[in-house]
Simulated scan of single mutants.
Amino acid sequence: MVKISSGLVVETSERLLTASEFQNLANVPPEVEWFANIENANTRRAYRNDVRDFMRFAGIQQAEEFRLVKRSHLIAWRKQLETRKLEASTVRRKLSAVASLFDYLCECNAVPFNPADGVKRPNQGTNEGKSPALGDAEAKALLEAPATDTLKGLRDRAILSILLFHGLRRAELCSLAVGDLQSRRGVLHFRVHGKGGKIRFLPVHPHSLQRISEYLEHAGHGDNPGNALFRPIKNSSGGLDEALTGHGVYKDVVRKYARVLGLDPSAVCVHGLRATAATNALDHEADIAKVQEWLGHASIATTRLYDRRKTKPEDSPTFKVNY
């Protein structure tokens, strides 16, 4: 036996890490720890590319070299990003990625301050988000576009209903399992697995509940809570029990019916439907703080990008001009 501390004793045979492995983990730089702690795959991919971009610019080759970075390096990088004609939102994201890294280094006492603090971010250029929202008539047409007499049509009708009535992200929709339909205080809810491992519960709209019931009745996999809610109808690899992919939702559902209806391709994407749901909720007097929780936004500033109540086309002075 090895005594670790007062009252705590463990058998040496219980040790899972070798002494060498233990020492190696103890020597992991905090820069590496920061990246390992990012759970969302999309965020990891974006932040990895952004930090690598800065490393190439600054000539950083070792993680420890981040501790030599000053605010002037980041200001110079920002100017270089702007000369590349990148969108303001892209520049902001890249600066945010590096700022997040230095926040972690500050917490670990690896650096005395965050050099990204005080580095001005470019304005968004607009008070609205980039994803245009569909009009009510367009949304209704999209909801009714899939067939009602095929399994694919029933599945797609349920998918479009969830996107337009609940504003889920593509990954959130794909991660839904049958068991994520749960009753809370007598009302059926979705248990949504959001960004950063956060879980939120959203009441299921009656429109969506009806379509999900019709789909599961014909699909036949609704008796196992662990089953993916939405699955492929056809798959060349034979994996019909797996969850439908985000690419499948975008290409084979959303864009497919948008093309059939002749809708604006720039407006009809999965995020465009999320913008449509948020805009519609705000137009119908939903509280913006509640919409923030509903969408799973960390900051209400992000939710405000969907608030288009002051920019309704019909309220524009354009339509007040009368010669």
Rank of each mutant, 00 (worst) to 15 (best):
23 Q>K: 13
25 L>V: 12
26 A>Q: 14
26 A>R: 15
26 A>L: 15
27 N>T: 08
30 P>G: 06
32 V>L: 11
33 E>P: 02
33 E>N: 05
35 F>P: 01
35 F>W: 08
36 A>G: 05
36 A>C: 08
37 N>V: 03
37 N>S: 14
37 N>F: 02
38 I>V: 15
39 E>Q: 15
39 E>Y: 07
42 N>V: 01
42 N>W: 02
43 T>Y: 07
43 T>G: 10
44 R>T: 09
45 R>F: 10
45 R>E: 14
46 A>G: 08
47 Y>W: 04
47 Y>F: 10
47 Y>N: 02
48 R>G: 03
48 R>A: 10
48 R>P: 00
49 N>Y: 11
50 D>F: 01
50 D>W: 01
50 D>N: 04
51 V>G: 08
53 D>N: 13
54 F>Q: 14
55 M>W: 09
58 A>N: 05
59 G>S: 05
60 I>L: 14
60 I>D: 07
60 I>T: 08
61 Q>P: 01
61 Q>M: 11
62 Q>K: 15
62 Q>H: 15
62 Q>C: 09
63 A>M: 05
63 A>K: 01
63 A>D: 10
64 E>F: 01
64 E>K: 06
64 E>I: 07
65 E>K: 07
71 R>A: 11
75 I>Q: 13
76 A>G: 04
78 R>A: 06
78 R>F: 01
79 K>A: 13
81 L>F: 07
81 L>G: 03
82 E>C: 00
85 K>V: 06
85 K>G: 00
86 L>R: 09
88 A>R: 12
90 T>V: 01
91 V>R: 02
91 V>S: 07
94 K>Q: 12
94 K>P: 04
94 K>A: 06
94 K>V: 03
95 L>P: 04
96 S>V: 03
96 S>G: 07
97 A>R: 01
98 V>R: 02
100 S>M: 05
100 S>V: 03
100 S>Y: 03
102 F>G: 00
102 F>N: 00
104 Y>R: 04
105 L>R: 02
105 L>F: 04
105 L>Q: 02
106 C>S: 00
107 E>M: 09
108 C>H: 12
110 A>P: 00
110 A>V: 02
113 F>G: 00
115 P>T: 04
115 P>R: 07
115 P>K: 07
115 P>N: 06
115 P>M: 05
117 D>M: 10
118 G>Q: 06
119 V>H: 03
123 N>M: 11
124 Q>A: 15
124 Q>V: 09
124 Q>R: 15
125 G>K: 09
126 T>D: 13
126 T>K: 14
127 N>Y: 11
127 N>T: 14
129 G>T: 12
133 A>I: 08
134 L>C: 02
135 G>S: 09
138 E>P: 02
140 K>G: 10
140 K>S: 12
141 A>C: 10
141 A>F: 05
144 E>N: 13
145 A>P: 11
145 A>K: 13
146 P>M: 13
147 A>C: 06
147 A>V: 04
147 A>Y: 03
148 T>K: 14
150 T>E: 09
151 L>P: 11
151 L>A: 11
153 G>K: 03
154 L>C: 10
155 R>G: 05
157 R>W: 08
